[in-house]
């Protein structure tokens, strides 16, 4: 049974695209057949983060409009043969995405892949609602700050009302992915605490991704962070989150900064 996952947040710049690529690659590394789908029409990024920007010929809108076959638009990853990308259009208008057209493409993808991971655009408009419309599972990407949490709350409301599952009277499975978590700022009290975010959003936590240079480096190289350096902290956190998505139970740790702690102790002594 294939699963359609929407990676969504309301707010922009929180790490949806980064997370889509990292989770997709981590799932594909376990041998599952995975496609990552870019719904951010007009502002596509996923091709860059996946390092496939020079290989885009056809895109989601071409397929929705029947100008290209799905197989022509899918781009197979060069590093992982179980991983594919369905890119968004950079030039077309997002009004070309129709609900029926997207439903048809999703149906075809379900036949080919175990996991269909949809990268949602920011906002609560058409693009975002179409990306979540056919999902079975939602990964709600949130940064530990007030505006991001509020936007996520809004998105959860839409997941519970504007999706096919909700319209059939069901409830969508939802997971919170806390990203760009900075242990130093958390220590100083400059960020919301993990518990506070969980209390406000009241959906289960699937992972905490630390703020890390590795993420920037990987995305500049066009490699999902889980493929570039599997041993770094964000890659491990993403891999664990992917396993939890597959139903495994893995203990979760709140990232700490050892150096930071040491520095603090040392600083106190010197004073």
């Amino acid at each position: 049974m294939s699963k359609v996952v929407v990676v969504t947040s309301g707010k922009g710049g929180v790490g949806k695209t980064t997370s889509t690529a990292a989770l997709g690659a981590a799932l594909a590394q376990t041998g599952q057949n995975v496609v990552v789908v870019d719904f951010d029409v007009g502002l596509r990024n996923l091709d860059l983060v996946m390092g496939a920007e020079r290989r885009v010929v056809y895109d989601l809108i071409n397929v929705v409009q029947g100008d290209a076959k799905l197989a022509q638009a899918l781009i197979r990853d060069k590093r992982l043969e179980t991983l594919s990308l369905l890119p968004a259009s950079q030039t077309r208008d997002k009004d070309n995405l129709t609900a029926e057209g997207v439903a048809k493409v999703m149906g075809e993808l379900r036949k080919k892949f175990d996991w269909i991971i949809c990268d949602s655009p920011a906002g609560i408009e058409r693009g975002a609602t179409l990306a979540m419309r056919h999902a079975d599972v939602a990964v709600v990407v949130t940064n530990p700050e007030v505006s991001s949490v509020r936007d996520s709350d809004r998105i959860i409301g839409l997941l519970d009302s504007k999706t096919e599952i909700a319209e059939r009277g069901g409830t969508m499975e939802k997971h919170l992915l806390l990203t760009r978590y900075d242990p130093n700022r958390a220590d100083r009290g400059d960020m919301l605490k993990v518990d506070d975010v969980l209390e406000i959003l009241s959906i289960p936590l699937i992972g905490i991704i630390p703020e890390s240079m590795e993420v920037l480096r990987a995305s500049n190289l066009g490699t999902p962070v889980t493929l570039s350096d599997a041993s770094c902290a964000p890659a491990k956190a993403y891999s664990d989150a992917a396993r939890r998505l597959m139903g495994e139970t893995i203990p979760m740790a709140v990232p700490t900064d050892r150096k930071g702690l040491f520095g603090k102790l040392f600083g106190r002594r010197a004073a």
Partner: peptide, 8 residues
């Protein structure tokens, strides 16, 4: 019985 979300 559910939380009332932002915007609702």
């Amino acid at each position: 019985e559910t939380p009332v979300r932002s915007g609702q």
